[in-house]
Amino acid sequence: MRPILLQGHERSLTQIKFNAEGDLLFSCSKDHVINVWFSHNGERLGTYDGHNGTVWTIDVDSQSKYLVSGSADNTLRLWAVSTGKCLFTWEFPTAVKRVAFSDDDEQVVCITEQRMGHQGAIRVFKINGDGDGTNQSEDPLYMFHPIGSKATVCAFSYTPNVIITGHESGKVALFDVSTGNEILNNERAHMDVVTDLQLSADASYFLTSSKDKTARLHDTKTLKVLKTFSTETPLNSAALSPNRPYVLLGGGQEAMQVTTTSLRQGKFETRFWHKVFEEEVGRVKGHFGPINTIAVHPAGTSYASGGEDGFVRVHHFDDTYFRAKPYGDMEIED
């Protein structure tokens, strides 16, 4: 399983995403650039230029038509995937930390940072797919300020108008975006900042990673913690592997905290854990710094990791990965 190294970013990666078909891989970075790559060979297809600050977050719709991105330049942008053209720009008082499309591609949720006297806000925009896509409404469909701990990550749940959020305090919660009400929360989901949140295919459960060194699987409906994966380093990202009962975790002590890196050179690892047994099954090393973001191909045939070192590594699983049945013949529902 020789990885493909994508060298198109000059600074650390912030988020990577496969499109629904899995043929494209989008990546954004602190170098202000968004790249799109062919996932099968790592060839760069193009870039989306325009942001004037760290691009914190991206998401692509299910038709691979539109891309949204949020940046430290206080803008949310809508792009045409195929032409690389910026179709619309929304401006805010503070940086955009997280964006996500709804299942039907009609809405985008975005989190803006709490800073300089501005409250953190969650906004939902309606995306107008008619015409060339440049005709968007300036104003959000819904907007509210979640009270308490800052939201860091979010995603739409399978219930209309309900989003799942992860917070700085370690809380996860369900919000009704139309009212701004917190429907349900689990204050003690994590003990530290929630760094990533990825949904299962049917959105009925989700995986979070946290600086508290654990990743957890939650029931979307009850927010109950179903599984816990405990590691020994702060985690930055966690991804579910479709069709296989594994979760992929990435992170690492930040460079500042590592006294000497010589021993750990290239040893920042993506950890594979068994989703149901909560046991570690394997590791893939390679990055020269902490892993910031992990994404798995929607068919589960490959995965990519983006690191603090500025590289994206794409791994295509080989046959043995699919043939291996380390836990016998038990059928596990996805």
Binding site: D202, S204, K221, V276, F277, Y327, G328, I332
Partner: peptide
């Protein structure tokens, strides 16, 4: 160990079935 894992898998699968029913209803 095998029994333990079997139990975990059974629990998981039961929960998944339950989820699917829920979503279908929704």
């Amino acid at each position: 160990l095998i029994a333990h894992r079997k139990r975990l898998v059974d629990e998981w699968n039961a929960w998944r079935a339950h989820c699917k029913k829920d979503i279908a209803e929704e």
